[in-house]
Structure formats: C-alpha cells, structure tokens
Design a protein around this nucleic acid. Structure first.
Length: 495
DNA sequence: TTTTGAGTTGTTCGA
DNA sequence: GTCGAACAACTCAAA
C-alpha cells in the first residue's frame, strides 16, 4: 500500500525549500491541501489586502502544483475536521506542515496535532519560515532578547541556516483525489473592485517572488544603503509580502544574498553587516518577540504604557487613513498604502509617528489599519513596528524622537517626486513650498491651483504644539517631573 | 550581585 | 549654514 501524506499549506505557498513537502515526498505520495479558517486566527484574521494576495497566491500555487503533476485541494475549516476528513477521503496516514508563530495559530496547531495523533495519524511540524526558531536564540542566562543588536549578533554566531532544498521535480500523486473547492469559492477577492492598484503593483506567487529577488540582487543590493530611504525610488527589496506568505523563504534569501555578495567580490567579513540582511534579522527578531511575549499584539510590552492617555479622535483617525492630514509627505504615504497595499519603510515610520505622537491616537488603531490595508500585513512585524514607533515596545524609539513630517519629506523626497505622485492636487506647487503648503505665499498657491481647505486640507495639527503635547504626555507616562514647573500646563499632575 | 557599556531609522537649539 | 549637544534617563545583556 502506498504511503500518502497530507501537506498542509499555510504561510509557505511555494515548492522550494519547503521542509514539510520535502518530508512528505521522502515518504511517498503527496496530498497538498489548503484550509480556509479565518475565524481560527481571531482577533487577527487576514485583512482585505491580505485576502486579495492570498487569492492570487493560491492560484499561482495551484499552477505550480499542476506542473509538478499534482493538485491543490482546498477546503473550509474548522481545520481539525477538515484535516481528519481529508485524511479519510484521501487515505492519508500523515499530516505535515511548516510552523507559524501567531499566538492564536500556535494554540490552534497544538490542538490540531493532538487530534490528528489521537486519531492514529502521524503529524509533524517543521521550520519553514525562520532562519532560527524563536526558542533557539537565547541570552546567556537562557531568556529571550529584547534588544535587536545582541539578538542579531547571537543569530549570526549560530551555525548558518541550512541551504535551501530545490523544489521536487515531481510530486507523486495519491491514487484517488479527494474533492475540494475552487479558489474562487473562498470569496477572498473584494466585492467592490478596489484591487486595480494592487494588481498593477504586484505579482503574487513563487515566480513573482523569485523574479523580485533576482531584480533586487542584480539592481539594488549594492546601492541598498544609499537608496533604501528614498521612497520615490525603488531601493528596497519589495519582498515583504512574498516572505509573509512564504512564497520565498528567508533561507533562500539569505543564501541568495550570500551567493550574490560572493559574485560581486564583497569580502566575506562584510556580508554579515549587510544592512539588508539585518532587515531579515528584524523579521526574525519580530517573530522572537511575538513568540516570547504573545500578549503584545494587543498590549504594550512596557506595561506603564497601558495607562497612556490615547485620544479618541475618529475624525483625525479617518483623515489619517484617507491621506487628508494636510501634511503632504504623510498623506502621500497613506495614499500609496491605499492604492498599492504597501508603503515604503521610511514613510511607514513617518506616518506611524504622526498618528501616535502628533495625533496621540493609539498605536493599536494604526496597527489595525495597516493590518487591513497592507499586502504584507504580518502580526509579528506589525506589532514590533507599531510598538517601536510608539515607544512602548522592545528596543523602542526614545520618546523624544518625534519625526517632523516636513523635514522628513524635505530630506528623503527633496524633489517631491513621491508627494507629486500620490498627492497630485499639489503637483504644480514648486519644490520649495510643496512640503508645507500652508507656508506658501498666496500667489504660489493660486498659480498651482491649490486652495487650502478646499482641494487640499489645512494641516489638522500644528507641528510644534503637537510635539510639545506629546513630549509632556510621554514624560508623564515615564513618571518624570516636568522640567519647568512654572510653565507646566498641568501642575496638578505633579502633586 | 553589581557594574558597565550600549542602544535602527530624529529634532531642535544655540554657538 | 554647519556642528555638537541636549533631549533623559532607562533597560538590557554580559562581564
């Protein structure tokens, strides 16, 4: 009798370097399955942009599997029942998958594994998503890291991650295929067709991921440090959504960068310091933190921030979401996000700082918006990023670091190409005024066809006032006395 | 146990 | 216009 293994695809929508698939192929026939059970990921079920991506990526995986002589069997959850049913229908005796690290998913997976094993099935999970497991990286006293640099140094000192496996040339098929749903039946695509910008910007799937990596290595890796901060240029890898869905693995990226560095004659002692690999390191660090501090998607790591007096300002939140804050660099970022499902990293920091420190709206509201709109929405990275910005997380930005949305724009978008692309109503303003149109002379505004408050908003806050207010609120949560009690606007707080 | 060195990404002010 | 200092101590990680 033929040994048949289910490979349960999740955030590993690829055939290369896929440990669960590798294990299954080594045993016999393979039954590839995908199970849609978003309610099991509550309170962070995939957002709208993620669902759009998932739809395309599943179609791509289906094609890849067909080329290898196989299929993708899709069913709905609950996962436990779906897997048990598939094992029965497909006469499979084992279920293999690659691990995920979101708290709700991990808890679900533990239960699924117990159920499968008590039903007499073999069940095994593998590491297909990280260079090192979160529990393998430890401080000398055996605890988790909370600072990036020592974390990453420790990672770099570990044995190098194994070389990626090639995709199996052919997947032995089970004698009988169980029935499944077409991808369309999951209704992952939006009813209202807002995904045109996403379609134009991305090619989900393993082939798209590999093409993006290749382009990055050939065209951008050497210039990465100098170009990566300029959002009007393509200087970053753009791999984040591909990595999130596991269309490419960090091990593939790691070894490809290493190979490329060797070809470009970059000395071996320099490549661990590569800024790009450190970004892969941040992804690892985010997963490390999420694993060891599973409450952080909803709660600040630094508990004193639980009492931070965030404002409830739905009108401001909405202005921020729509890119109508009146700060062109911020608005450009928010509109890029809305249109393409992605935002440049530099701009993410600026818009996040603006929400949290200028508007004093909770980082969690920002995290939720990003979760719904980003194609690379990833619980570990999103949590780390927002808590870092808000100053309430691991290795956080100092509280007095408040990005100035105007000077950030002038510094990283000096010719305002990024602003003009995403905020076209300001396109005719000269470079000198476009970063802060409220300072422009009336004549310049008129010539550019800009009427503040009509076809582009006046700034919803004043930078210097917002900055002072934020500093005071943060000082308070740090439990520090105001430096100048005579001018403090809230002397009662010091009693 | 205590001490010591160090920490992604900035801004503002005043010399 | 450029440059260094202050921001404000705090926490982590390792010795």
């Amino acid at each position: 009798m033929k040994f048949i293994s289910i490979v349960w695809f999740r955030h590993d929508l690829r055939l290369e370097d896929h440990p669960a698939l590798h294990a299954a192929v080594a045993r016999g026939a393979v039954l590839p399955v995908f199970i849609w059970a978003p309610e099991e990921e509550a309170p962070w079920p995939p957002g709208s942009a993620s669902r759009w991506w998932l739809h395309q990526s599943l179609l791509a995986l289906e094609t890849d599997l067909k080329r290898a002589g196989s299929r993708l069997i899709i069913r709905r959850g609950p996962t436990r029942q779906a897997l048990l049913g598939l094992a029965k229908d497909g006469r499979a005796s084992a279920v293999f998958w690659n691990r995920r690290y979101e708290p709700a998913v991990m808890a679900r997976d533990v239960k699924v594994m117990e159920s499968l094993r008590s039903a007499g099935l073999e069940a095994e999970s593998f590491n297909g998503a990280l260079l090192h497991e979160p529990w393998e990286v430890q401080t000398k006293s055996g605890g988790p890291f909370q600072v990036f640099t020592p974390f990453w140094k420790t990672c770099l000192a570990l044995p190098a991650p194994p070389k990626p496996w090639p995709a199996p040339r052919e997947l032995p098929a089970p004698r009988k295929w169980p029935v499944g749903l077409p991808v369309e039946a999951l209704e992952l695509e939006p009813e209202v067709n807002w995904a045109g910008g996403l379609r134009a910007s991305w090619k989900p799937g393993r082939a798209g991921a590999r093409a993006e990596l290749k382009r990055f290595l050939n065209e951008r890796l050497l210039k990465y440090d100098g170009v990566r901060d300029f959002p009007s240029r393509v200087g970053t890898s753009r791999l984040s959504p591909h990595l999130h869905f596991g269309e490419i693995s960090p091990r593939q990226v790691w070894h490809a960068v290493r190979r490329s560095a060797t070809e470009k004659a970059i000395p071996e002692e320099r490549w661990p310091q590569c800024r790009f690999l450190a970004e892969i390191g941040w992804r690892e660090f985010a997963h490390h933190l999420l694993h060891h501090f599973p409450h952080t998607p909803a709660q600040p790591l630094r508990s004193q921030f639980a009492k931070f007096p965030w404002r409830d300002e739905p009108v401001w939140l909405r202005a921020w979401q729509r890119g109508l804050t009146g700060f062109p660099f911020v608005d450009a970022g928010m509109r890029e996000l809305w249109a393409t499902g992605w935002m440049h990293n530099r701009v993410r920091m600026v818009v996040a700082s603006f929400l949290v420190k200028h508007l004093l709206i909770s980082w969690l509201d920002g995290a939720r918006w990003f979760w719904d709109t980003l194609v690379d929405a990833d619980l570990a990275n999103n949590t780390l990023g927002w808590q870092w910005t808000a100053g309430c997380g691991a290795d956080a930005a100092p509280y007095f670091r408040i990005f100035n949305p105007v000077s950030q724009g002038k510094k990283f978008d000096p010719k305002a190409k990024y602003i003009r692309r995403w905020v076209p109503e300001l396109a005719k303003l000269p470079d000198r005024w476009i970063h802060a149109p409220w300072e422009a002379p009336a004549e310049s505004l008129a010539r550019a066809g800009v009427t503040l408050g009509e076809n582009y908003p006046k700034p919803i806050v004043k930078h210097l006032i917002a900055r002072e207010t934020a500093l005071e609120a943060y000082r308070k949560v740090k439990g520090q006395p105001h430096p100048d009690p005579w001018t403090s606007s809230s002397p009662a707080l010091r009693a």
